[in-house]
């Protein structure tokens, strides 16, 4: 922290300088009158710094803020933690580059966790651009950090199938009707880890990361609802999608990561268990993104409190006069 202040003094100086007129106004006119007539551009400016400074601080120092995992993130972590080496995990990536900011870190953390546990990974996608997201995860994590994992034995990319929830309806009972080959065109029969796999009820866990339709909601409706005892599902969703999934917790959806916050919580759990001392920065993406979130949230909370303090003081003054 001290190093940061010393080395990056100019940023802090710029921030303080830009806020000087506001402070002057506070001292000149008093706190209450200033707050009452506050030009909303000051709010914009403070918001700007509240987002920029944490990004800069985290970007320079590589430090992240601590994260207390919520019960839902812990439940998600536990679902994977419970599996044993060689168990089967289906990873369905239903998102696109637009939502990668929120969901990319979740995908990274899920793959790392599963790879550390030596699970067998089955990737698939219901979004046409999903295979690209799968390729990113394989290229950046499995190939780089887990080079001993063998394609076809430890992980397989089944690729994209069109048909939205129709695909789910079919593969819950019959995977091979739709998937005759993997994404590389290898026949399913020639892939060792596909031996004996008839349908996705044989998966020990399904992980769905989704940014909309089709997504976790469809997986709940068409996979978990008809086979509640045989298919277990956990999910990761964007902030906009997550509220729509709450009604399914915990019976049909034992774990859910919501937005960048959920991703950061899960990331911190995975890193605590498997990160070692010097975690690669790519496994800290969500935690880095949480920095500006935290400060900005605290700012909005502070603004709401300030607004109500003004309101009540005013009302008392009006009542008195």
């Amino acid at each position: 922290m001290a190093d940061f202040v010393l080395n990056q003094w100019w940023l802090l100086a710029a921030m303080i300088l830009s806020l000087v007129p506001l402070v002057l106004q506070f001292t000149r006119d008093g706190v209450m009158p200033t707050l009452e007539t506050l030009d909303r551009r000051w709010i914009f400016l403070i918001m700007f710094w509240a987002v920029l400074v944490p990004i800069y601080y985290i970007g320079v120092t590589g430090e992240t803020f601590p994260e207390t995992p919520s019960a839902l993130a812990e439940a998600t972590f536990e679902e994977i933690e419970r599996l044993e080496e060689g168990d089967r995990l289906l990873l369905a990536f239903d998102f696109d580059p637009a939502s990668e900011g929120e969901l990319g870190p979740m995908a990274t953390a899920f793959v790392k966790h599963a790879a550390e546990k030596r699970l067998r990974l089955y990737f698939m996608a219901l979004w046409p651009i999903g295979p690209q997201m799968i390729a990113d995860a394989i290229n950046e994590i499995i190939l780089v950090d887990y080079p001993d994992m063998v394609y076809g034995e430890d992980y397989v990319n089944l690729g994209f199938k069109s048909g939205n929830e129709g695909v789910i309806k079919v593969i819950v009972t019959n995977l091979r009707e739709l998937y005759t080959t993997d994404a590389r065109g290898t026949a399913i029969g020639d892939i060792p880890m596909m031996e004996g796999i008839e349908n996705i009820q044989q998966m020990d866990l399904v992980v769905n990361i989704s940014a909309g339709y089709p997504g976790t909601k469809e997986w709940v409706q068409y996979a978990v609802t008809p086979y509640p005892d045989r298919i277990r599902l956990v999910g990761g969703a964007t902030g906009v999608q997550a509220p729509l999934l709450y009604p399914y917790i915990p019976e049909q959806l034992p774990g859910l990561l919501g937005a960048i916050k959920g991703a950061a919580e899960y990331e911190s759990l995975v890193n605590a268990a498997y990160g070692g001392d010097d975690t690669d920065p790519k496994y800290l993406e969500a935690l880095r993104r949480m920095g500006p979130q935290l400060v900005a949230h605290l700012l909005i909370i502070g603004l709401i409190i300030a607004a109500n303090v003004i309101f009540f003081l005013n009302r008392r003054r009006v009542a008195r006069s």
């Binding site: 985290i58 970007g59 900011g101 902030g239 906009v240 960048i260 920065p281 900005a296």
Partner: peptide, 27 residues
Amino acid sequence: YTVMGRIALVAIRLEFLLDDWLWLIDP
């Protein structure tokens, strides 16, 4: 609930400025 997503949007724009353009940070 929406606040989080909106802040992420501005954070991504500022990351673009600081990282891709100014090369001030390199996480």
